[in-house]
Every structure is written in C-alpha cells, then in structure tokens.
Amino acid sequence: MKKDIILCGVGGQGILSIATIIGEAAMNENLYIKQAEVHGMSQRGGDVQSNLRISSQPIASDLIPRGAADVIISMEPMEALRYVPYLSPEGWVITSSVPFKNIPNYPDIEAVEAELAKIPHVVCIDIEQLAKDNSVPRSANVILLGAAQQALGIDHDKLEAAIRRVFARKGEEVVEANIRALEIGRDKGE
C-alpha cells in the first residue's frame, strides 16, 4: 500500500486537520508516514500545502516527486490547479468548488472549472453549502475528506475511528459533527 497525497488551500482553511486525521488512521494501521507542512509567513492568507505520504514500506523523501501524487485534496479550486504538475496521470483531484478570493487578480471561475475538467478524475463539491445545509458549519474540510476516502483507499470505519481519537479532547458534540461531515462527504463522493 502506498499513497502520495497533496493537501492544499489557503492559510487558515484547515488542511492540517485533514492531514492529522489521515495520519492518525495510517499510524493506527502501522503504516509509514511522512508529512511535510508549511509553517511561518505563508500561513498568513497565502497558498499553503502539505505533502502527505503513507506506505506499508519505508518512505525516503518528505516531498512527493512531480507526476507522482495519487490524490490532490484541495479546499479551493484554483489551489488544486497549482499542484497539477505533481499529479500522476491517473491521479484524483478532490476539491471544494468555492473560490477564496483574497487577491485582486483571481481568475474567472469558468476558466478554473475548464482547467479542472481537463483532468480525468475530478470530484468538485460545494462543501461550504453542504456544511451549512447539514448544520456542521465548522466541518467543511471533513466533508472534503469524506469525499476523498475512495481515492485514498482508506476504509470509512478507520477514518471515523481516527476522528474519534483526534477530536476526543474537544467533546462529543465536535466528534459527532465531524463524523456526520465524513458521512456527507462519502455519500457525495460516490
């Protein structure tokens, strides 16, 4: 088993929480993990990404080579495109459809969608509307994770158990909201 995953978005969108849940699930399966993160200046509203690699064999590089990522999970549609050079030919893109416009020259969303459509395997979801409609407003990122579970090749039960462990400190309400979000994402991603 080996999955190279790029998580991306804009600083503050919660990509590291997604990474923590996947990492927890992988650690529980005794898999090898490498997860390169971005800290520091770029977190202030800039583009951020995390390279997450999980494997049943030891992993050498902390960084994913270009053309090798199995999955891109993106909290923002233009940010998904930024990492397309890293995507393997048959790789999956799971992205939020909602643009985050904090720059004056944000491109036409139609142009972004057209580029996404050129990639063979894309799941594009309005996770923010889904989060609102289902009363889990703070768990849009976990909806995205739910939609990615098939591409990740990690069982729903294992992600659910990881969510229980990761959010245990924050109380039962937060745990349940995130598990609901994971299910919503799963149903949407199928």
Partner: peptide, 26 residues
C-alpha cells in the same frame, strides 16, 4: 536530484490561469 541522476518523469504543466497568492496581513 532525479534530473541530476538522469531520470525523467512525464508531468503536466501548471495551468496558466493559476494566479500567485502571496501572504497578507490578517
């Protein structure tokens, strides 16, 4: 490092539509 060792992998280019997103004051 792969290039220095003579390796090449096929890859897509980053679409031109992608704009830079520098950090900013909160």
């Amino acid at each position: 490092v792969g290039a220095a060792l003579g390796l090449q992998t096929p890859q897509r280019a980053m679409p031109e539509v992608v704009a830079a997103r520098p950090p900013a004051l909160c």
